[in-house]
Design a protein around this nucleic acid. Structure first.
Ligand SMILES: [Mn+2]
Ligand SMILES: [Mn+2]
Ligand SMILES: [Zn+2]
Ligand SMILES: [Zn+2]
Lengths: 192, 192
DNA sequence: TCCTTATAGAAAACTATTATCCTATGAAAT
DNA sequence: ATTTCATAGGATAATAGTTTTCTATAAGGA
């Protein structure tokens, strides 16, 4: 039994346990969300599902995913750079993400625990930390190779709105803006 | 000379150096952005400025802030939970943020460098990290006190859309959803 | 099988943001 | 001083993801 199969069973059990109806549309959405390859967006889920459900409304996808989010069974990740929200139904708890700014692939890197960082923040500020989000933006190995070689070759991953060429800057800690889109200049940052 | 004064001078110098006109409206926006108390939104900047410029259009605020962002002089932070983008013109480079989920105050905590974390990710995945974003969500000391005491007392900070009561859960690493809004149930997360 | 009611689907409504249009401004050039 | 003309401000329209509203339908229990 694969991990996503177990996850699917769990999601089904949660819905049925709460007396929510398990419609064919919902089941299909659960299947996609339980796998969550590449952290799908509403639009992507919708496009996949209309193959099997040509009459499905995108509102249904919104409503089902929102329901899962409210049940704590899906993690919502907003990506304002591309103007969509993406969802992780395989790991519904906060965890770091690694995003390639060129081909837009999204990974769940296995970093160390963020607990020490969180505890430092709590100690120094008096906050009680409840949640967090860490996103690392950069170039995946494939896109790095493509970068130095021919400047051509289209991106690997699926839907790309338009030209997402990046500004070619490297940095360790103080780096390009959060939305490394098509900014005009090299953005010469300075630390205080 | 305060830190924000120095920052204002810098912003003015940048605009003038690039041969952008330093209009009264822009100067007023620069002043607010250079201070960046609480990481203002476009709407908040607009509301402050229309006291001095009753005829100002919100489009002007959008255009000026966007210009500063493209010049790398302002950090844009999208907060989908409240449906707005906020701006930090005092520290235009990526840095962690601490957000109170109740009163919505936003702080720049002084944590250690994220460089080791970033390098770990780079080593393990082959990515070239260019940028990052770390947000910690929780309860500020004031709101913690208000929490255990009377369940009443309105939030301290400015605009709050509606009831942002939180689910009262504590956690260190695996915590409530990223948007700890008015979710229905306690969200019983499980790690794999 | 029947009944109750949550849900699907279609479309309108919403809203932060962006683009467009036009006029005003102001820094040169004459 | 006058003309020029690119830039900027103000008003408004357009965009797009998301939410809401309404009604017919079908899930699931009796
Ligand atoms: Mn993930
Ligand atoms: Mn900040
Ligand atoms: Zn890539
Ligand atoms: Zn607070």
């Amino acid at each position: 039994m694969s991990s996503s199969d177990a996850r699917l069973s769990h999601l089904m059990a949660v819905l049925q346990g709460r007396r929510f109806r398990l419609t064919p549309q919902r089941l299909a959405i659960l299947r996609l969300v339980a796998r969550s390859d590449g952290h799908p967006s509403i639009e992507e889920i919708y496009e996949h599902l209309r193959e099997d459900f040509p009459t499905m409304s995108i509102a249904t996808v919104y409503k089902t995913v929102t329901l899962l989010k409210e049940l704590g069974e899906v993690l919502e990740l907003s990506f304002p750079e591309e103007g969509v929200k993406r969802y992780d139904g395989a790991k519904p708890y906060p965890h770091p993400h690694l995003i390639c700014v060129r081909c837009r692939k999204i990974l769940d890197p296995d970093l160390g625990s963020l607990t020490p960082l969180v505890e430092t923040a709590a100690r120094r500020t008096g906050f009680r930390i409840l949640s967090h989000r860490l996103d690392l933006y950069g170039l995946c190995p494939e896109c790095q190779a493509r970068e130095q070689g021919g400047e051509d070759a289209p991106p690997a991953h699926g839907t790309e709105t338009d030209g997402n060429r990046l500004p070619i800057r490297l940095s360790g800690d103080c780096a390009p803006p959060h939305a490394p889109g098509d900014g005009a200049e090299p953005t010469p940052w300075r630390r205080p």
